[in-house]
Simulated assay, not measured.
Amino acid sequence: MSDIETTSVSEQGFVTNNQVGDFSLTIDATDEEGPNPNDVLVADYASCFLPAFRVGGQQRDHDDLGKLQIDAEADLNDEDDVSAIRFDIYVEKDLSDDEAEEITERAEGICHVHAALREELEADISVETDAF
């Protein structure tokens, strides 16, 4: 049994309707009915990094960082693949540069998306035709 299971369905065109547990998420490669997959990847990364940053702060005796915000940017190469991601993290609490660096380094070790974004992680793919 898997730890994570999702169902993604594309009836036609480039829109995919995803069921993730009790939640539905529409992703559209053309940006018409939802965000595109690259946008979702960057948002997912930021959404994972923020709580990791908060936990990293707690592990470094900063229990109340206050409001956190990430403004994320990504560059695409000529094939529209993500080639770079940048985060600007805004923290309500006043931290020294060393404290912010320590928390960031800890968050990198905690964030599951950060750990997953590596070349050797690729889907193991099988295809079943005439399935419907």
Rank of each mutant, 00 (worst) to 15 (best):
M1E: 09
M1C: 03
D3Y: 09
I4R: 05
E5R: 07
T7R: 13
S8M: 07
S10K: 05
S10F: 03
E11K: 11
E11P: 01
E11D: 10
G13D: 04
V15H: 01
V15L: 11
T16V: 14
T16E: 08
N17E: 15
N18D: 03
V20C: 06
V20P: 00
D22K: 13
D22M: 03
D22V: 02
F23D: 13
S24M: 12
S24K: 15
S24V: 00
T26Q: 12
I27M: 11
I27G: 05
A29R: 08
T30Q: 13
T30I: 01
T30K: 13
E32Y: 00
E32I: 02
E33R: 04
G34V: 03
P35T: 10
P35V: 11
N36C: 11
N36A: 12
N36L: 07
P37F: 02
P37R: 02
N38G: 13
N38I: 12
D39V: 00
V40A: 12
D44Y: 01
Y45H: 15
S47N: 04
F49G: 03
F49C: 03
L50T: 15
L50H: 05
L50R: 09
P51N: 09
F53E: 07
R54Q: 12
R54G: 04
R54F: 08
V55Q: 13
V55F: 10
V55T: 06
G56K: 02
G56P: 01
Q58F: 05
Q59R: 14
H62P: 04
D63S: 10
G66D: 01
G66H: 05
K67M: 10
L68N: 06
I70A: 10
D71H: 10
A72Y: 12
E73R: 12
A74Q: 08
A74K: 13
L76M: 06
L76G: 01
D78I: 01
E79T: 05
D80E: 10
V82L: 13
V82D: 09
S83L: 02
A84G: 07
Y90P: 00
K93G: 02
L95I: 04
L95C: 09
D97C: 00
D97A: 11
A100Q: 08
E101C: 00
E101V: 03
E101W: 06
E102K: 15
T104L: 12
A107V: 14
A107K: 08
E108P: 01
G109P: 01
I110L: 15
I110F: 13
H112S: 15
H112L: 12
H114A: 10
A115L: 12
A116Q: 10
A116I: 10
R118F: 00
E120M: 06
L121C: 09
E122T: 11
E122C: 00
E122P: 00
A123P: 15
D124F: 02
D124L: 03
D124I: 04
I125M: 11
I125S: 08
I125P: 04
I125L: 14
S126N: 09
T129F: 13
T129S: 12
D130N: 15
D130L: 07
A131R: 11
A131C: 07
F132G: 14
F132Y: 11
